[in-house]
Design a protein around this nucleic acid. Structure first.
Length: 588
RNA sequence: GCCCCUGUAGCUCAACGGACAGAGCACCUGCCUUCUAAGCAGUAGGUUGUGGGUUCGAAUCCCGCCAGGGGCGCCA
């Protein structure tokens, strides 16, 4: 927001250093840790160290301070209140009123675009969620879905053209197991209300029976073969039951406020995948060991002539000729680029256990000469486990179903909302319960490094206090409440902060001004955590402001300025929550 | 054996190579005739797993070690 001033100052510093033979190191500007005023700074440690390396006898910290002091005397830029040289840092403080005005006016002008980046002209596909049909949809799947959705929202806001892709696993050993179990124990049954739950139960039962009696695996293999030959009876059953699952997913996504632009299905990639494998064999990249009872494999390290085990060996087709996920992922990767030839990036948001799989798939594509491979990347995330490091497993039955979690969260949120604010109408209660319940669910997942495990427990998931979505939503509600009581914003074109600002106000401005930078960082690193953090920081700072700075009862001029600040805060909170897929309610 | 991730306050987690490592929870002390107390202020809590190295400066980068988790030819 002060780029012009920064550039002038940078030029000043360079001129001075050149004139005095000082080997200026690269200048890096950072915000000054808050001390009651807003400003930004750069240090001269690097420059002093460079002098030392050139043989000059200096104590680096001392010399850095010396340079900072000299430079300080060279700078004369309007808009700055004062400049200081401290501990080797050059601190530039803005005219606080001017800065505040700029920030607030920018937010109010740009509204729901505040923080967004300029269009990059890049189309990016994000594949995420990937639920398996014929299985339960549980909290383990929640992370990939929530994370992928947030990444899409952030990348879009940062200026990219995002394609949201889903890739349900609608065929594979798990589906065969389900069909087997259905035919054997539930033939003719149809799901009633809880579709996904019922699908999950049928699967768990089948998996269990097969585990108890491994001899039954022969039946599975023969069923898989019937599918592979497209036995009409099996295909028809598969189509009907698959639709049950997909309907369940649609309901789940609607409840989560997540949508997709395109669906790919692994069943559709079987044939093209097999063809690709054939070609790999013809070209000598893949080795067909089926004659010896083996599978079709790609010895990647050997193909690349590597001594160390790095990419290892990938199985790309089962010994019986049926397709694996690897088979299908090879085809899908190219399929995406046929559908969207201008894709700049093709991103896969999938849990960390599949890291080697994607490394192998992308590497094989590269070896086969497909340039698209360079544009493919895997964004991995850690698992959601249950207390005691118990992995959530449909087979073990250690699942917390998403629908149960959602119901519990909204019920709790509703009760809480009613308790805190009995004046809410039924319709309002409904909205608040949905917004708060869902937000409480999403926030803890997004406010965590992708590489860190999340342990699910009901207490934490349903804790609405402290560093959580409801706290941020509440800050938004408070902003809204003030603005509602004030009857909107005063009719002025721009803000005038013509009074001595309270430190809490300045701190709030500081946080708001950081939002656009955090959007860029979150997008560049696929890191919703950056948004989750800044949203919380803004809410926290606003709470301090709310306590320290009366708005309604302030003198007219102060009141007008603060109302605009409150409006800017509300907007920024709403924008940041939107990036997390969390609703910002009007009342709570 | 090879590869990846994690290790920061009692617990759960932040911190883009920079100033005093910060929040929340839990604990303790205050604050609702004043814009919604889902809130605020304060107290307390740290050899950043460990040993080296790079750097003016390391929780952050590099190497070794320890501990936990995950992945390593026909699951997805």
């Amino acid at each position: 927001m002060f780029q012009t001033e920064q550039q002038i100052i940078e030029a000043n510093i360079k001129t001075f250093c050149t004139a005095n033979g000082i080997p200026l190191a690269a200048l890096e500007w950072k915000p000054i840790p808050f001390s009651g005023e807003w400003g930004f700074s750069t240090s001269f440690f690097g420059t002093a160290a460079a002098e030392a390396r050139l043989g000059k006898k200096v104590v680096v910290a001392q010399r850095a301070q010396e340079i900072a002091e000299q430079v300080k005397r060279q700078i004369d830029v309007p808009g700055l209140s004062h400049i200081e040289a401290v501990k080797g840092y050059l601190n530039l403080y803005f005219d606080t009123r001017e800065y505040t005005r700029r920030v607030v006016d920018t937010v109010l002008e740009q509204k729901n675009c505040f923080g967004s980046g300029p269009a990059t002209g890049q189309r990016v596909m994000i594949e995420f969620s990937q639920p398996n049909t014929h299985k339960a949809f549980h909290v383990g799947h929640l992370r990939g879905t929530i994370l992928g959705d947030a990444i899409c929202r952030i990348l879009e806001f940062a200026g990219n053209d995002v394609v949201r892709a889903n890739y349900p696993g609608d065929m594979g050993m798990h589906v065969i197991k389900w069909l087997w179990g259905y035919l054997k124990f539930h033939n003719g049954e149809e799901p009633a209300t809880d579709i996904t739950r019922w699908m999950g139960e049928v699967y768990a039962e089948a998996a269990h029976r097969i585990e108890e009696n491994p001899d039954l695996e022969a039946e599975l293999r023969s069923l898989y073969a019937r599918w592979d030959q497209r036995d009409p009876e099996i295909v028809a059953l598969w189509e009907r039951t698959r639709e049950w699952s997909l309907e369940g997913f649609r309901q789940m996504y609607a409840a989560l406020d997540v949508h997709f632009d395109v669906y790919y299905f692994n069943s559709q990639e079987e044939k093209p995948g097999k063809e690709m494998v054939e070609e790999l064999v013809r070209r000598g990249i893949a080795t067909d060991e089926r004659a010896q009872g083996g599978a079709v494999i790609v010895k990647i390290d050997e193909v690349l002539g590597l001594d160390k085990e790095q990419f290892r060996t990938a199985v790309v087709l089962r010994s019986d000729g049926t397709a694996l996920y690897a088979t299908e992922d090879l085809a899908l990767a190219l399929h995406k680029f046929r559908d969207y030839p201008d894709l700049a990036k093709s991103v896969y948001v999938v849990d960390v256990r599949q890291s080697l799989h994607f490394t192998q798939v992308f590497k094989i594509l590269e070896i086969a000469g497909h340039a698209q491979a360079q544009k493919c990347s895997h964004v991995s995330y850690e698992l959601v486990t249950l207390p005691g490091n118990v992995v959530i497993s449909s087979r073990e039955g250690t699942v917390v179903l998403l629908e149960d979690l959602l119901r519990e969260a909204t019920t709790r949120a509703r009760a809480e909302a009613h308790k805190k604010n009995p004046s809410l109408t039924e319709a309002q209660l409904e909205n608040v319960a949905k917004a708060v319940g869902l937000g409480a669910l999403k926030y803890p997942i997004l406010a965590r490094e992708n590489t860190k495990m999340v342990t699910f427990d009901w207490q934490t998931a349903l804790d609405f206090n402290g560093q959580a979505a409801p706290y941020i939503q509440y800050a938004h509600v408070r902003c809204n409440s003030i603005l509602r009581k004030a009857g909107g914003l005063p009719d002025v074109g721009r803000s005038t902060f013509d009074y001595e600002l309270n430190p809490a106000e300045i701190q709030l401005i500081d946080m708001i001004s950081r939002f656009p930078g955090e959007v860029q960082r979150a997008a560049a690193e696929y890191k919703p955590l950056a948004i989750a953090s800044i949203a919380y920081d803004i809410a926290k700072t606003f709470a301090g402001f709310y306590d320290a700075c009366p708005v309604m009862q302030a003198e007219p001029q102060v009141r007008a300025a603060r109302l605009r600040l409150v409006a800017a805060t509300r907007q920024t909170l709403a924008n940041s929550l939107a990036l997390l897929g969390i609703t910002a309610p009007e009342v709570m």
